[in-house]
Each structure stands twice: as structure tokens, then as C-alpha cells.
Simulated scan of single mutants.
Amino acid sequence: MSKAKLGSKAAPVRFEGVSKVFGKDVVAVDNIDLHVEAGRLVTLLGPSGCGKTTTLRMIAGLEMASAGRILIGDTDVTRLPATDRDVSMVFQSYALFPHMSVLENVMYGLTFSGFGKDEARARALQGLDLVGLKGFDNRLPSELSGGQQQRVAVARALVLEPQVLLFDEPLSNLDAKLRRQVREDIRAIQKDLGLTVVYVTHDQEEALAVSDEIVVMRNAGIAQMGSPRELYDAPNDRFVADFIGEANLIACEIVAVEDDRATIEIEGYRHDLPARGLPPGPATLAVRPSRLLIGASRGIRATVIKATYVGVRMEYTLEGAFGQVFAVQEDVDDPLAVGTEVLMSFAEKGPVLLPES
């Protein structure tokens, strides 16, 4: 990809007690505080109806906050219309004009922003070069693949040099292979130019792959925010544990705590891990499928009730007195048969006790 540079005016975004209510009583966003640092990519992640898209639209000025303040840089934009905010948005649908060439699509916003035709053309060509579409300027959108059309939409937003670049489910119309490629392109461009990006998705893997920070939203509020690794390794509660990647939730007993290290027990099998402030007694353990070890010399008795080959790994469903869990193994050459009795244990790192909600 070209290293051509467009100037960046990246600015931070801050929400202070922001709420959005539709009608009389439909609360879409409920009193959230949020700080997006300049030059960072922050993803709003959550299920449908959690408030993530409404939050994004309030940054863009497409929805007005019912309460609280929104700042971009040092400017209070809470009551400013979308046209007076220095932001650009890349939509799920690409929103390209089918009768215009690729170059004309990228130039479109520039011509309405006071740029002369020659300068608009030069900046549009630079934007296409940046997203890997040099030489595509005379093609129509219908002559491009879905991934190429999405890159045109990104180029059109980039050439305006916004303080904040917004993405609303930008990859949902692409197949799996293209999603991976385009998300890598978006992340590379964001890092290259030092852009402030707020990115909305419901896809956990996508969020983990592109983000400096993830904001997990639930029921119009923020459930947890942190780096991808922080959220994956130390979820606050059952919802976050299960939403950021898959997690097996297993009842356990904390039998001892010393120096914030806990010893847990499940059917006689013991494991040491951080106590996270929890006292001895009943607790819930979250274990990622890759952190479940099958075939250990000691562990919890279980039976393989489902075995699925997915190419690069085997996926197993195990059942025991503890319930059912989902596990993955890289050994595809010697798979376990359904009905096999096994001992199941945990990796040294990975299992995490969940603080009480």
C-alpha cells in the first residue's frame, strides 16, 4: 500500500453524561461517559439495540443528544449540525453514486468543501493511491468488487481530512476473506495517518483485530471498556466474558485465598488463579475454549458428545457433572471420537474468576 500522506487533524472525542431518548421513554443511550484519545481506533461493540450506532450518530451530528455534552477537540459540538462538525462517516452500504466514476465519487465531498477542481482531483487521486486503488479512477462502482467499493468509500472520507473518522458496520456486506483483508487495510491506514477513528461493529473478532480500545455496550450503557487483551483476559462479568469471544462459564468453589491468589475446586480438581477480590465460597469461572485441556493426567471427568472438523482445528462439546463446555484442539490428525471419556483441565493462564455483577 502506498505511503502517500494526507494531513491529519486528529482530535479527541469526549462524551460527558450523554443520553439519547427517542419519543417519551425509549432510552437508546443512557448517561454515558466516554473518552476517545486522538489518533486511536476505538470500537463500539455490542448486540443489536445496545446503543452503539446511536452513539456513533451522535458524534456525527445525525442524532442530537437529549442530555450531556459532546466535545470534539476543545469544541462543544453537542448542538452543532452534522455539516458544522469536522467528521466523516463510512457507511455499511458504501453510499457510492452509481453513475459517477470512482474518481468523481471521491471528489464529490471536496467540491462542496471549497476546493477547486484541480486540487480536488489531485487530492482524490492521492486518496485512491492511499487505499490501493491507483489506476481505478475511471471505473464505475459496478465494475468493482465489494471490497474495492468499500475502499472507495474510505478514500472519499479520508480526503476530507476529518478530525474524526467514523465507521458504521463497514464490513458487514463483505464475505469472510474480504472482511479480513479490508479490516487490515483500514487499520493500516488509521495507524499510518494517525487518525482518530470510532468504529461500530457487532463482530467480536473484527473488534479484537482492529482496535486500540473496545467499548462493550449493553442496554444503552457501557458494560466495560479496555484494550482487546484486557477485555478478553479479564472480563467484568458474564455478559462481557461471553460476548468478547466465546467463554465457558463453570460453577466452582473458591476453597482458599492468599495474597489475592485463589485456589478453586471443581469435582476434586484444583486450579490456582487471581482471586480478583473474591472471597472463599461459590463462584463462576470463565474459560476460553482454547484454554480447556483435554486428555490431562488429572482433571475433571467429561465425555465427548460432539466432534466437528473445521479444517484448521477440531471443535468438541464435552459434557460432565458440571454441564456442557466447548473446547478446541489443533490436533486434526487424531481426533477424539464421540463417546470418548476424557479428563479435562485448564491451561495455567487464561481461566478467570468473574466478579459478581
Rank of each mutant, 00 (worst) to 15 (best):
E184Q: 15
K117Q: 14
D137T: 01
V77H: 04
T83C: 12
P98F: 04
G127V: 07
K177Q: 15
S145C: 04
L128Q: 03
L144Q: 05
R156V: 10
D175P: 07
G127L: 11
A95N: 00
L80G: 06
L140Q: 14
E169H: 11
P170W: 08
M89P: 04
A122K: 14
E104F: 10
L125F: 03
L144M: 14
F167S: 04
R121N: 10
D118I: 09
H99D: 08
M100A: 10
E184R: 15
G73S: 00
A95I: 02
V90D: 02
L144E: 11
P162I: 04
T75C: 10
V182W: 10
A153V: 01
L103V: 07
F112Q: 15
A157Y: 07
L80N: 04
L125N: 12
P170H: 06
V77S: 00
Y94K: 03
L71T: 07
Q92S: 06
Q181G: 03
L158S: 02
E161D: 01
V152C: 02
D74H: 08
A153Q: 05
L133G: 04
R183V: 00
G135A: 11
Q126W: 01
V182D: 06
R123Y: 03
G132N: 12
R79W: 05
N138G: 12
V154M: 15
L133W: 08
G109L: 05
L171K: 03
R121D: 05
T75S: 14
G147K: 13
V102R: 10
E119P: 00
V152E: 05
T78A: 08
P170C: 02
P81G: 13
G114P: 05
Y94N: 01
D84P: 03
D84M: 13
Y108A: 11
F136K: 14
F97Y: 15
A176H: 11
R123F: 03
L140T: 03
P98R: 08
E104N: 12
L171P: 01
G147F: 06
L158E: 06
R156Y: 09
V106D: 06
S113C: 05
D129R: 15
Q150H: 09
N105L: 09
T83M: 09
S172F: 05
V152Q: 01
L160S: 08
G146W: 05
L130H: 11
G116W: 03
R79A: 15
D84N: 14
R139M: 07
R85K: 09
F112H: 14
E119M: 00
L165S: 00
S101Y: 05
L174C: 13
L178D: 08
